[in-house]
Design a protein around this nucleic acid. Structure first.
Length: 415
RNA sequence: CGGAGAGUAGUGUAGCGGCAGCACGAGUCCUUCGGGAGGAUUUAGCCCGGGUUCGAAUCCCGGCUCUCCGACCA
């Protein structure tokens, strides 16, 4: 991608109506744009990151048997009335001109359960796993923290359907480990903890995946003995001791919830009268689980955790581009060398952002490159060309080294 | 929803009852080119509605919006 053609302009200063680190950086670097509190547009750079995250999640969901589909965001009142959740406070409600009631989906049990029911009648049809990646709407009392807590946000929600509780439990564990893989692949390996959280009205507990960061909005307690972490609301109910080993040696940390997994058991299958016939021909209730990840929140957390005073430091797996190619000095020779390198890298299948903007000073280009946070920076200048080289630098490190242009291809294939 | 703060040009800010200014950005021209470069020139603004006043960006009232704390949070 040529930077001169990108919908992009770096802002020198953080907008005054953003305080959170993720929003300051993502807005300054033109990854996102705020439409209103809790609602952001993803600009081309941010959208690339989002798609990277989405693909990682999709791959891991498919690995645990998930089938992707897409459900509507606009829901009829009837489905929600069936479960008694029409009155839930976070539901945005609207009326058609004809007076019909609609709700905007903030989760999809009410839609997926009756849908899957149409296709399942026998134990042979189970288990079944379906997921979608789609915008959710939640009437939060207070949207905050940039893209960490929005009222419209992108979410992956997986729903599983089982013949009994045991099968649900087994699958639940599989998804748990898939989630760890997802967060690790997104560059949050060290920071992400599984925590015990409240289970809502379906079960006593659920599990949350919390990324530890000083800018987090939740409080979690890490047990030094077990590798367990516990959410504030649970620890208070457990006498401030570890749930497992009863240790009181707990470390309090601020964290951001990236994902939440639930055993729904028969809460929704009962409401929608969703039964199947077992091997003996007996009618049995379906067991369900649901598993969510907020994509925008994940992106925000990555930016929130991976940055320095100059800007974002994207992990390679989710970076909008792998290489930022920057010619300095507008001499024909430099431009020609950079043009050639851009073509070569692209032919090699490397995602490269080429800062071909004419007339920008060297300082400005380099400062903006740090702000964007693309993992590898290649600078071409008169100086480097004297040695038939480019300067190579990894974002987040200080080391620079020269690489012969003839060697770039080989070097890149090693990364 | 309770509490606190804030709305001035695209962005960031000054002005605090008497001509709305600065920096960056953007446009044109020229010179530059290794950490937001220089010169010339142009462009663009007081959130909305009332009130007080000879006069309001400024004071008062109402509204809207944003941020933060709390409450809430599948």
């Amino acid at each position: 991608m040529k930077q001169s053609q990108l919908l992009f302009k770096a802002q020198r200063e953080a907008p005054k109506d953003e305080k959170s680190v993720n929003a300051k950086l993502l807005v300054r670097a033109a990854f996102v744009d705020k439409l209103m509190a809790g609602v952001y547009s993803y600009l081309p750079l941010g959208f690339l990151v989002l798609k990277k995250i989405e693909n990682i999640i999709r791959e891991e969901m498919v690995k645990v048997g998930g089938q992707e589909l897409l459900l509507p965001a606009l829901h009829p009142k009837e489905n929600w009335a069936k479960t008694g959740r029409w009155q839930t406070e976070e539901m945005f409600k609207l009326k058609s001109r004809g007076g019909k009631d609609y709700g905007l989906g903030w989760t999809h049990e009410e839609i997926i359960t009756p849908l899957v029911k149409k296709f399942v009648s026998s134990h042979k049809d189970l288990p079944l796993f379906v997921f979608q990646i789609q915008n959710k709407f939640r009437d939060e009392l207070r949207a905050k923290s940039g893209i960490l807590r929005g009222i419209e946000f992108i979410m992956k929600d997986l729903y599983s359907f089982h013949k009994d509780e045991k099968d649900l439990s087994d699958y639940y564990e599989k998804v748990k480990s898939a989630y760890f893989k997802i967060f690790a692949r997104c560059g949050l390996k060290k920071e992400t903890f599984l925590t015990l959280a409240g289970g809502g009205t379906f079960s006593k507990y659920s599990h949350e995946f919390q990324a530890v960061t000083p800018y987090g909005e939740d409080l979690i307690y890490l047990c030094r003995n077990c590798s367990l972490a516990i959410n504030k609301e649970i620890i208070e109910g457990e006498g401030n001791a570890c749930f497992k080993c009863k240790s009181k040696n707990l470390e309090q940390k601020k964290a951001i919830e990236l994902g939440n997994i639930f055993k729904l058991n028969d809460r929704f299958s009962k409401a929608f009268d969703f039964y199947f016939k077992d091997v003996k021909g007996q009618k049995k209730i379906v067991f369900m689980g649901c598993y969510g990840i907020g994509l925008g929140r994940l992106m925000g957390a990555i930016a929130e955790i991976n940055n320095d005073k100059n800007g974002i430091i994207w992990p390679k797996e989710v970076a909008p581009f792998l290489v930022h190619l920057i010619p300095i000095e507008a001499s024909k020779k430099v431009i020609k060398a950079a043009d050639n390198l851009y073509d070569d890298l692209q032919n090699q299948g490397i995602e490269v952002l080429y800062d071909d903007r004419y007339g920008k000073g060297a300082g400005e280009k380099l400062v903006e490159a740090d702000l964007l946070g693309i993992p590898y920076r290649m600078v071409v200048s008169e100086k480097t060309l004297k040695q038939n080289s480019i300067e190579f630098k990894e974002r987040g490190t200080e080391k620079m080294r020269l690489i012969k242009i003839s060697n770039v291809k080989v070097q890149m294939s090693k990364l």
